[in-house]
Design a binder for these strands. Structure first.
Lengths: 127, 127
DNA sequence: CTAGATGCAAACTCTTTGCATTGCC
DNA sequence: GGCAATGCAAAGAGTTTGCATCTAG
């Protein structure tokens, strides 16, 4: 198995993602971190984000403009509650989804394997 | 307000989308329709899909490779059950979502405004 | 006839890749 | 020292745009 090095760039990206619990694009991350490291390359940001996604430490989604954005998160199956005011992202479990399964089967004989859910609203601070 | 013309290209695209209830990319649509109309331009397909999306007759999503794909659907709020075998897309209402609201509020004081859901599984024919 | 639609080609944006260099372990 | 990571530049892929031409109404 490939050995992973702990580099300052990787640490900086992970720290930023942990500190800022919102969906950030590669370019946004690049712009922020370039202040401290002017030689940072956008391609490095992309490669690191790809790595973090493989490791399950980051999940991503596609914005309406087609850009991909990333959040730090756990590896377990869960969903995101996204604040439409500040962009804050919280994880939500999906216990209640089980109730869908039977309804869906009965309604149109569809056998549920997986699901993808995002919730939008206002977080505790923005309400 | 702008006047919309009914052109053969638009009719062909709408017909194809109605006939094939799966998420199709612009390029896929282009390839299929080019057989009957060799002078068809990919940009026309994009422009038509954009128009249909504005009119609420089409919804779209982003595939894992970054491509956008489109399905014909109703304008009302609903979700899609996507067959992982044949790609068939069915609409699903979201009555059961209401049960989430109270749970979500109690759990982490998040006020739910909207949600985006996709289900994956096997449709009646592919089970 | 006229505003809207189309084809074609060029431009754009985001993302990926090749390769020489640098740096972690 | 050796393999992994990075910077830089160039290439890719999907999508959008400008403009002359064509066409529905």
């Amino acid at each position: 198995m490939r050995t992973l090095y702990t580099t300052s760039t990787r640490t900086a990206i992970v720290d930023l993602l942990k500190r800022d619990p919102r969906y950030l694009t590669a370019t946004a991350i690049y712009r922020i971190l370039r202040d401290d490291n002017p030689r940072l390359a956008l391609s490095t940001v992309y490669r690191t984000l790809e790595l973090l996604a493989e490791l399950g430490n980051v999940s991503f989604r596609t914005e309406s403009n087609g850009e991909t954005s990333y959040v730090f998160c756990t590896d377990e199956h869960h969903h995101h509650a996204i604040c439409s005011v500040c962009g804050h992202v919280d994880e939500v479990d999906c216990a209640a989804i089980d109730q869908f399964k039977s309804a869906l089967m009965a309604q149109q004989s569809f056998e549920l394997d997986d699901h993808s859910i995002e919730f939008y609203g206002r977080c505790a601070r923005c309400r």
